[in-house]
């Protein structure tokens, strides 16, 4: 059983489990699934700076912070006790392309050749780690949700604005992967 759990889980197991989070949150306490809002709550708690967008009763939203705190703990549990000792299997074509940029370590959840404390102080690492993160935080809030809030929760509730947002997420991702990222990785 444990051996089986340690293998990478297939999509048809993981997808439905993630989908079930939607009714689980609704049934537990009338909460709608969304993760990027936690970033807003952190702003509201730490640096509201009298900005109206951050002036609300965040104490009512602490459930969201418990939820993301749980995700972090879940990451620890999975890495400590359920880890698959083998490196990530990636598409041979991707491996070949990445090797050209010096990415050869497949042991981490993120490529250690790109995302590490040493890399942070290089131009490439700074763009990947800091600029990338900024765009995730800025973009999700501007769009009013992320993959969980729009693509999963919004689409589950058949909301067409969420479909627009999801399509834009994908377009942005394709543009970055095909047109821009190769130039960043070359740095």
């Amino acid at each position: 059983m444990l051996e089986w759990l340690k293998q990478p889980w297939p999509w048809y197991v993981a997808g439905p489990l993630i989908g079930l989070t939607v009714p689980a949150l609704l049934l537990l306490g009338n909460k709608t699934f969304g993760i990027s809002s936690s970033l807003r709550h952190i702003c509201a708690i730490c640096i509201p700076a009298k900005i109206p967008f951050f002036r609300y009763d965040w104490k009512k939203e602490t459930w969201n912070l418990f939820f993301v705190g749980g995700i972090l703990l879940g990451g620890i549990v999975a890495a400590q006790w359920l880890a698959n000792p083998a490196p990530v299997l990636v598409h041979p074509q991707l491996a070949e392309e990445l090797a050209a940029y010096g990415v050869t370590d497949y042991n981490g959840i993120v490529p250690r050749d790109l995302f590490s404390w040493q890399e942070l102080f290089t131009l490439r690492g700074f763009i990947l780690i800091v600029v990338g993160g900024f765009m995730v935080g800025f973009g999700t809030r501007y769009a009013g949700g992320c993959t969980s809030g729009h693509a999963i929760m919004g689409l589950s509730n058949l909301q067409w604005p969420s479909l627009v947002a999801t399509c834009c997420f994908m377009i942005g991702g394709f543009v970055m992967t095909w047109l821009i990222l190769p130039h960043i990785l070359q740095l």
Partner: peptide
């Protein structure tokens, strides 16, 4: 916002 997040997501 969706486009900006998409760009960041792929990074």
């Amino acid at each position: 916002g969706g486009l900006i997040f998409g760009l960041g997501w792929a990074i």
